[in-house]
Simulated assay, not measured.
Amino acid sequence: MTEQLGAVLDNPVPAITLAEAEALARDAFGLAGTVRPLTAERDRNFLLTTGDGRDYAMRVINAAEDPAVSDFQSRALMHAAAADPALPVPRLHPPLAGSSPEAVWQPADGGAPCRVRVLDYLPGRPLYQTAPDRAQRTAIGQCLARLDAALAGFRHPAESHVLLWDIQRALQLRGAAAQLPDPEDRGLALGVLDRFERHALPGLGDLRPQVIHNDFNPHNILADAVDDRRITGIIDFGDMVRAPLVQDLATAAAYSLAPEGHPLEGPAQLIAAFDAACPLWEEELEVLADLIATRCAVSVVISGWRALRQPENADYILRNYPRSLSGLRRMGALPRQDAQTYLREALGR
């Protein structure tokens, strides 16, 4: 797994100037305006504002990204928007030429060509800037259930691509987990991975599979400018993969772990809203707490490892690290049976 991590980091984000980005938007998409850079980990993102005041997000995708995977992400967005027109996902704007949902940009220096995607720039504030409460967590659970329902029938040849953030592959992170600097955190991460191997992994193949967002975290969900409880946007579909449906819920729940009180108080509120719209199977509920803990471990291991390798981008890479580390410490110390009992009682099971 460290080889896979290194392979990702050895492919830098595309080098493109603001002038080149503006020319690309104009020539490939017919959108004349000005651009300014946005943060990203693997790609180069821009906010494009056209002369009529409309905003778009333009992503110049890392050349190392498999074109089939990029096409998978774009077409999944198109499918979700068509399946549920009221769902707050960005609408994709295809290029002027060809049938592909993306354009191709060839760097002037002769570097590898990059695919380019243009989406609506959605209004709102990222949830990490808001004050979370039960009502907001309920809205998150409801919104995730709607998104998963919209994606349920979508299929694509690249849907099962290898992804570092795929919980199904968490055991491949054992080597990187063993390198965590703090002995207690290292022990917790390895213990969580052992629990995943023993209790969750054997039955994953029997659970409901579908294409999932796989990164429903507070940086990728937008709230209304005034009302923190109203979800206005779902962004960053770059970690999508075909996986058990419950993996999407576990990922979202991992970012609602309570820093005080019972660690599963916040996740249980989100899970109850999801369950009301999309009832969980008993087999899914059985492993849900294991998957929540595993997502925390995956986030801590990958983010920590990447930040050491990319110190210039550490602030962005570690944006969710404190939350995930707190979650790992709290879930790693929570007995498995206690976690299952708490969730079952919260759902009235």
Rank of each mutant, 00 (worst) to 15 (best):
T2H: 11
E3V: 12
G6I: 04
V8S: 09
L9E: 12
P12K: 11
A15F: 00
T17R: 03
A21Q: 02
L38Y: 04
E41S: 08
R44P: 04
R54W: 04
A57D: 00
V69K: 02
S70R: 01
F72R: 01
M78S: 09
H79F: 11
A83R: 13
D84T: 11
L87F: 11
P88N: 09
R91G: 04
A97K: 05
A97F: 02
S99A: 15
S99C: 05
P107G: 08
G110V: 02
L119D: 01
R125N: 13
R137H: 13
T138F: 04
T138H: 13
L144P: 03
R146Q: 14
L151Q: 08
A152N: 09
H156K: 07
A158S: 06
W165A: 09
I167D: 05
Q168V: 15
R169G: 09
R174Q: 15
G175Y: 05
G175I: 10
D182L: 10
G187W: 07
G191T: 04
D194S: 07
E197G: 11
R198V: 08
H199W: 10
P202V: 09
H213M: 06
P218Y: 05
L222A: 05
D224S: 04
G238F: 05
T251R: 09
Y255P: 08
G261M: 06
G261A: 08
H262S: 00
H262D: 06
E265D: 14
L270T: 05
D275C: 03
A277V: 09
E284W: 04
E286K: 08
L288S: 06
A289D: 10
A289H: 14
I292V: 13
T294E: 04
A297I: 11
S303D: 14
W305N: 05
A307W: 00
A307E: 08
L308P: 00
Y316W: 02
R319V: 15
G327F: 07
R329C: 06
L334F: 06
Q340I: 01
R349W: 15
